[in-house]
């Protein structure tokens, strides 16, 4: 029986792993949002009740999106190795995790965004149509702007989901909090690291969730509204 790791060392490990997690999750969320929002917009525009109904396009795009969402992340992680190598120049480390993480999150964000945009009332959208606004203008000033609070919440949901996925980053040497808990904590029977990480993850996700909820509410101009 070894003596327990000193708390100062645990904290040091946590700080380093938190940095890795936030890096992986932050960049992935950014990329997933950048690509996921257009996917969501496209899905919504082409849907039967959308501004540009295109049943065939909608069905194909929806199929691909749902296929992406149904893919277990661990499978994506290994399946995308060659793509990752092409993009980041290597297939190991935190940066390498960003590729599968982003790819996995784009369809996730896409569906979330489409659901959110579909909540904007038809009468509001039609009112904008009758002003002679272009589709681009309507997407920007009506669909996205009216949905901003819900979109901010959706990004929060994505961040927390990606923190969960990033726990598997250890498989390709990505590091991060999940990896710390499994490799240093669980596999080496180091309870301080295991439970310290678990507690810290709980705190981190709670704080992030709180922050996103606050930001969403601050952006909302509706008064008696449930988002």
């Amino acid at each position: 029986m070894r003596s327990a790791t000193p708390w100062s060392d645990v904290v040091e490990l946590l700080v380093e792993a938190t940095g890795e997690t936030l890096y992986m999750v932050g960049v992935s969320t950014l990329i997933a949002t950048l690509f996921g929002i257009p996917v969501g917009v496209w899905l919504q525009l082409t849907s039967p009740g959308g501004l540009r109904p295109q049943p065939a396009v909608h069905r194909i795009l929806g199929f691909v999106t749902d296929l992406g969402r149904s893919m277990p992340f661990i499978v994506l992680l290994v399946a995308l190795t060659s793509v990752t190598r092409l993009i980041v120049g290597g297939s190991i480390g935190s940066s390498a995790v960003i590729v599968p993480l982003s790819v996995g999150a784009i369809p996730f964000v896409g569906r979330l965004v489409q659901n959110i945009l579909s909540e904007v009332h038809v009468s509001v959208v039609e009112a904008a149509v009758t002003t002679g606004a272009t589709t681009v203008k309507i997407v920007r000033s009506v669909l996205l702007r009216e949905s901003l609070p819900a979109l901010i919440n959706a990004i929060g949901v994505t961040v927390i989901a990606l923190i969960g996925y990033s726990a598997m980053a250890g498989v390709i040497g990505g590091g991060g909090l999940g990896d710390l808990a499994i490799r240093e904590g669980y596999q080496r029977f180091n309870d301080r690291i295991l439970w310290g990480t678990v507690a810290w993850l709980a705190v981190l996700t709670t704080v992030l969730q709180f922050g996103f909820t606050r930001a969403a509410r601050a952006s909302d101009r509706r008064r008696h509204a449930a988002i």
Binding site: S123, R145, R221
Partner: peptide, 19 residues
Amino acid sequence: RNARRQIGVVPQGDSLLRQ
């Protein structure tokens, strides 16, 4: 779109941008 600007519409029900 130009023709639409010739016709102002007050749609049925709530149609204002709430944000």
